[in-house]
Amino acid sequence: LDMDCLPYGWEEAYTADGIKYFINHVTQTTSWIHPVMSVLNLSRSE
C-alpha cells in the first residue's frame, strides 16, 4: 500500500499546528484520515 499516492482530486495539507489532513477538491470536503485508508476500512466492514 503506497501511502504517498493520493487518489485523483486529493491533496495533503497541514493545519497551522502542523497536523496533517487531506482535501478532496472534487467533493470540496476534508478528512483527517488518508483517503486510501478510509476506503480500506469501509471495505472491511462489509
Rank of each mutant, 00 (worst) to 15 (best):
L1P: 09
L1F: 11
L1G: 08
L1R: 02
D2F: 02
D2W: 03
M3T: 15
M3L: 12
D4K: 07
C5K: 13
C5A: 14
C5W: 08
C5M: 11
C5S: 14
L6A: 05
L6R: 06
L6W: 01
L6E: 07
P7A: 06
P7F: 07
Y8G: 13
Y8F: 11
Y8M: 10
G9D: 07
G9I: 09
G9H: 02
W10D: 06
E11P: 04
E11D: 08
A13P: 01
Y14H: 07
Y14M: 07
Y14Q: 10
T15M: 03
T15W: 03
G18S: 05
G18L: 01
G18Y: 03
G18V: 02
K20Y: 04
K20D: 04
K20F: 01
Y21H: 00
Y21K: 01
Y21N: 05
Y21T: 01
Y21R: 00
F22D: 03
I23V: 13
N24V: 04
N24F: 02
H25K: 14
H25D: 00
H25C: 03
V26R: 12
V26E: 13
T27M: 14
T27Q: 10
T27Y: 15
Q28S: 10
T29R: 07
T29G: 04
T29P: 00
T29M: 03
T30F: 00
T30A: 06
S31A: 03
S31N: 00
S31G: 09
W32G: 06
W32K: 07
W32V: 04
I33M: 12
I33P: 01
H34V: 00
H34F: 00
H34N: 12
P35W: 04
P35L: 01
P35E: 06
P35C: 00
V36K: 15
V36D: 14
M37H: 11
M37A: 14
S38C: 07
S38N: 12
V39C: 12
V39Q: 14
L40R: 13
L40I: 03
L40E: 14
N41G: 11
N41M: 09
L42N: 15
L42A: 12
L42G: 14
L42R: 14
S43P: 12
S43Q: 04
S43N: 14
S43Y: 02
R44H: 10
R44D: 14
R44F: 01
S45H: 09
S45Q: 10
S45V: 12
S45D: 12
